[in-house]
Computed example of a mutant assay.
Amino acid sequence: MTPPDLPLEGLPAPQEENSPAVSLRLQVLKNRSDFLRAARGKRVAKAGFVLQMIARPEGEAPGIRIGYTCSKKVGNAVARNRAKRRLREAARLILLQGGQPGHDYVLIGRRETTATQAFDDLQSDLAHALGILHGASK
Protein backbone atom coordinates (compact mmCIF):
# COMPACT_ATOMS: atom_id res chain seq x y z
CA MET A 1 0.00 0.00 0.00
CA THR A 2 1.35 3.43 -0.90
CA PRO A 3 0.49 6.73 0.81
CA PRO A 4 -1.71 9.13 -1.14
CA ASP A 5 0.06 11.87 -3.09
CA LEU A 6 -0.43 15.40 -1.86
CA PRO A 7 -0.63 18.36 -4.20
CA LEU A 8 2.64 20.31 -4.12
CA GLU A 9 1.19 23.57 -5.34
CA GLY A 10 0.55 26.20 -2.72
CA LEU A 11 2.68 24.51 -0.02
CA PRO A 12 5.60 26.54 1.36
CA ALA A 13 9.08 25.12 0.97
CA PRO A 14 10.51 23.65 4.18
CA GLN A 15 12.80 26.13 5.94
CA GLU A 16 15.88 25.11 7.91
CA GLU A 17 16.10 27.07 11.13
CA ASN A 18 19.74 26.30 11.89
CA SER A 19 21.62 26.82 8.66
CA PRO A 20 25.12 27.91 9.74
CA ALA A 21 27.17 30.11 7.45
CA VAL A 22 30.34 28.16 8.24
CA SER A 23 31.00 24.58 9.16
CA LEU A 24 30.75 23.77 12.86
CA ARG A 25 33.35 21.03 12.60
CA LEU A 26 36.93 21.56 13.58
CA GLN A 27 39.42 21.02 10.78
CA VAL A 28 42.24 18.70 11.80
CA LEU A 29 45.90 19.53 11.23
CA LYS A 30 47.72 16.71 9.48
CA ASN A 31 50.86 18.21 7.97
CA ARG A 32 54.07 18.39 9.97
CA SER A 33 54.67 21.94 8.76
CA ASP A 34 51.41 23.08 10.39
CA PHE A 35 52.47 21.56 13.72
CA LEU A 36 55.90 23.21 13.48
CA ARG A 37 54.31 26.58 12.69
CA ALA A 38 52.04 26.27 15.74
CA ALA A 39 55.06 25.42 17.89
CA ARG A 40 56.48 28.88 17.08
CA GLY A 41 53.35 30.57 18.44
CA LYS A 42 51.99 31.16 21.93
CA ARG A 43 51.65 28.31 24.41
CA VAL A 44 50.01 27.61 27.75
CA ALA A 45 50.88 24.60 29.91
CA LYS A 46 48.19 23.06 32.08
CA ALA A 47 48.20 19.95 34.25
CA GLY A 48 46.72 17.68 31.58
CA PHE A 49 48.02 19.17 28.34
CA VAL A 50 49.97 21.92 26.60
CA LEU A 51 48.01 24.18 24.24
CA GLN A 52 49.82 25.93 21.39
CA MET A 53 48.22 28.60 19.20
CA ILE A 54 49.20 30.67 16.19
CA ALA A 55 47.17 32.96 13.92
CA ARG A 56 47.17 31.97 10.27
CA PRO A 57 48.17 34.52 7.61
CA GLU A 58 45.43 36.46 5.82
CA GLY A 59 43.99 34.70 2.81
CA GLU A 60 44.03 31.19 4.26
CA ALA A 61 40.91 29.24 5.23
CA PRO A 62 38.94 31.12 7.90
CA GLY A 63 37.93 28.16 10.11
CA ILE A 64 39.40 26.80 13.33
CA ARG A 65 42.05 24.12 12.83
CA ILE A 66 43.34 21.84 15.56
CA GLY A 67 45.99 19.16 15.89
CA TYR A 68 46.53 16.53 18.57
CA THR A 69 49.77 14.87 19.54
CA CYS A 70 51.03 12.56 22.26
CA SER A 71 54.62 11.35 22.38
CA LYS A 72 55.70 7.89 23.46
CA LYS A 73 56.37 9.36 26.91
CA VAL A 74 52.59 9.32 27.42
CA GLY A 75 52.63 5.53 27.23
CA ASN A 76 51.95 2.71 24.84
CA ALA A 77 49.62 3.04 21.85
CA VAL A 78 46.52 2.35 23.94
CA ALA A 79 47.39 5.11 26.42
CA ARG A 80 48.26 7.59 23.65
CA ASN A 81 45.03 6.89 21.80
CA ARG A 82 42.97 7.28 24.96
CA ALA A 83 44.67 10.59 25.75
CA LYS A 84 44.03 11.86 22.21
CA ARG A 85 40.38 10.77 22.32
CA ARG A 86 39.91 12.77 25.53
CA LEU A 87 41.65 15.81 24.00
CA ARG A 88 39.50 15.57 20.85
CA GLU A 89 36.27 15.48 22.84
CA ALA A 90 37.31 18.37 25.10
CA ALA A 91 38.27 20.41 22.04
CA ARG A 92 34.97 19.61 20.34
CA LEU A 93 33.05 20.86 23.37
CA ILE A 94 35.15 23.91 24.27
CA LEU A 95 37.01 25.11 21.19
CA LEU A 96 33.92 25.78 19.10
CA GLN A 97 32.85 28.46 21.61
CA GLY A 98 36.23 29.70 22.84
CA GLY A 99 38.39 29.38 19.74
CA GLN A 100 38.78 32.10 17.14
CA PRO A 101 38.50 31.52 13.40
CA GLY A 102 41.74 31.95 11.53
CA HIS A 103 43.83 30.31 14.26
CA ASP A 104 45.59 26.95 14.52
CA TYR A 105 45.67 25.11 17.83
CA VAL A 106 47.71 22.08 18.90
CA LEU A 107 46.90 20.06 22.01
CA ILE A 108 49.83 18.05 23.38
CA GLY A 109 49.04 15.26 25.81
CA ARG A 110 51.00 14.83 29.03
CA ARG A 111 52.23 11.69 30.72
CA GLU A 112 49.69 10.04 33.05
CA THR A 113 47.57 13.17 33.60
CA THR A 114 45.81 13.55 30.24
CA ALA A 115 44.27 10.10 30.43
CA THR A 116 43.48 10.17 34.17
CA GLN A 117 42.48 13.76 34.94
CA ALA A 118 38.76 14.31 35.57
CA PHE A 119 37.12 15.25 32.28
CA ASP A 120 35.41 18.32 33.79
CA ASP A 121 38.82 19.57 34.95
CA LEU A 122 40.25 18.95 31.50
CA GLN A 123 37.46 21.03 29.95
CA SER A 124 37.83 23.89 32.42
CA ASP A 125 41.62 23.90 31.93
CA LEU A 126 41.11 24.14 28.17
CA ALA A 127 38.66 27.02 28.53
CA HIS A 128 41.08 28.82 30.88
CA ALA A 129 44.03 28.23 28.55
CA LEU A 130 42.05 29.67 25.62
CA GLY A 131 41.24 32.72 27.72
CA ILE A 132 44.92 33.23 28.50
CA LEU A 133 45.98 32.84 24.86
CA HIS A 134 43.34 35.26 23.59
CA GLY A 135 44.03 37.79 26.33
CA ALA A 136 40.77 37.42 28.28
CA SER A 137 42.42 36.45 31.55
CA LYS A 138 45.94 36.20 32.91
Rank of each mutant, 00 (worst) to 15 (best):
L26S: 11
M1V: 10
V106S: 06
L107M: 12
Y105Q: 01
R80H: 01
S71V: 07
R65H: 11
H134E: 13
S71F: 04
G131Y: 06
P20K: 07
T113K: 06
A39S: 15
Q97D: 13
A83S: 15
N81S: 13
A61D: 14
E112R: 14
G41R: 01
R86A: 00
R56L: 04
I66T: 01
Q52C: 04
M1G: 14
E16L: 13
I66Q: 01
R111K: 11
L87P: 12
R43S: 03
P57G: 12
A13I: 03
G41Q: 04
L87R: 13
R110N: 02
E58A: 13
A90F: 02
L8H: 04
M53G: 00
P20N: 01
G59W: 15
K72P: 05
G135E: 06
L51D: 12
I132N: 07
L126D: 06
R110Q: 02
H128W: 14
Q97T: 10
D104I: 00
R88Y: 11
K42A: 13
I64C: 11
D120W: 02
A61S: 13
L26Y: 12
T2C: 04
D34A: 15
K84G: 00
P57I: 08
P12S: 08
G75A: 07
S33D: 12
L95T: 00
Q97H: 10
Q15N: 03
R40E: 14
G98W: 13
K72D: 00
P62E: 13
L122I: 04
L87D: 09
A39E: 14
K84E: 00
D121H: 13
A136Q: 09
D34W: 09
A38D: 12
A79T: 11
F35P: 02
I94W: 05
P101S: 15
A91E: 07
A118T: 01
L126C: 13
K72M: 05
L133D: 01
P14K: 06
R40T: 15
R32T: 05
G135H: 01
R88A: 12
R25F: 01
P3C: 03
Q123S: 00
G10A: 13
L107P: 03
L6N: 06
A13T: 07
V78F: 04
A136K: 06
P14L: 09
N31I: 01
G98R: 14
A136E: 08
E9M: 12
R110W: 08
A136H: 09
C70G: 11
I64N: 03
F119V: 05
E58Q: 12
P62G: 14
L96G: 11
K30H: 14
R85D: 08
K30Y: 05
S19H: 12
I132A: 02
L8A: 05
G67T: 11
P20E: 04
R82L: 11
T2V: 09
S33Q: 07
R32P: 05
A77N: 01
N18C: 09
A79S: 06
P57H: 08
R111G: 01
H103F: 15
L93R: 15
A83F: 12
R88L: 08
L107W: 09
E17M: 09
I64F: 06
G59P: 15
R88F: 06
K72W: 04
M1T: 11
D125I: 05
R40V: 07
V78K: 07
R111N: 04
G99P: 08
V28W: 10
M1Q: 09
R85I: 08
Y68N: 11
G98V: 02
G109H: 11
D5I: 05
